[in-house]
């Protein structure tokens, strides 16, 4: 999995991220939306709300209800995936929801719901992290007040080497995987999982590497949000000429 030059299956260095492309405001029917390409991952996120809760009895009297649906398209993986939500997708929906929850001022909008839809169009490992990152962008685009953006990235161990941002093969063949969701300005971690086995030292190394990765992705996130404003400004300047 790691060649003699110390490079990984896709030619990356151990501490190198995959190529990342993000865009905000891609869907006109949603209140907020975003799209991310991270390596071969292609993920769309849409946010609706705050809006009235349906069914009514789920409404909370003191804060907004945050709902999240992580879903993989049938064509997102090599073998057709049944479109019905699987055990894994239901779990990831919950995990992503809980990673985003502390960043949102839910208590400002009692009796409403904020709905997040994450659609994985093409999957290549690390979709829970990319999904969290893109959902945070969609929330910011929708104008939902947030304490901070949330950005997620994984690190892990492949062939005895601690590596950043694992792809599908590395995730399956490697020894361990540590996804981390992080609020960069507040310095808080809102998701931390581990799959596989690591020594305490290796775990600390992975955690630090993943947080470093988060900080790098955070820069792309900010750029994507600012690009939204810049395009408006450029169009105007174009007209003025």
């Amino acid at each position: 999995m790691i060649n003699e030059n110390g490079l990984r299956v896709d030619g990356r260095k151990p501490n190198e991220l995959r190529l990342i492309k993000m865009e905000v405001g891609v869907l006109s029917n949603a209140d907020g939306s975003a799209y991310i390409e991270q390596g071969k991952n292609k993920i769309l996120a849409a946010v609706y709300g705050p809006r009235e809760v349906h069914p009514r009895h789920l409404a909370l009297p003191d804060r907004a209800l945050l709902r999240c649906r992580y879903h993989m398209a049938p064509f997102s993986v090599e073998e057709r995936k049944s479109p019905a939500p699987s055990r894994r997708e239901i779990e990831l929906s919950k995990v992503i929801k809980e990673a985003l929850e502390p960043a949102i001022f839910l208590e400002k909008f009692p009796r409403t719901s904020i709905d997040i839809f994450i659609e994985v169009l093409q999957a290549d490992g690390g979709t829970r992290c990319a999904g969290t990152t893109v959902a945070a962008l969609a929330l910011a685009d929708a104008g939902v007040p947030m304490r901070d953006l949330v950005v997620a990235c994984a690190a892990g161990k492949v062939d005895g080497v601690i590596v950043l941002d694992l792809n599908d093969i590395e995730d399956k063949e490697g020894e361990a995987d540590v996804p981390v969701a992080y609020m960069p300005n507040l310095g808080l971690i809102s998701l931390l999982q581990m799959d596989g086995s690591l020594t305490i030292e290796e775990f600390n190394q992975s955690l630090n590497l993943a947080m470093d990765g988060c900080k790098q992705i955070y820069k792309f996130q900010k750029e994507a949000l600012k690009a939204r404003y810049v395009t408006i400004k450029e169009e105007v300047e174009e007209c003025l000429r």
């Binding site: 907020g32 910011a140 929708a142 104008g143 947030m146 901070d148 300005n185």
Partner: peptide
């Protein structure tokens, strides 16, 4: 801290952000 995407405006005492997108409360 900012809680929305927008333009920051520094006043004498008040710091505010003019949001790009909001909903009506």
């Amino acid at each position: 801290y900012a809680s929305r995407l927008g333009l920051v405006e520094y006043g004498e005492k008040v710091v505010q952000v003019v949001a790009l997108n909001t909903f009506y409360i």
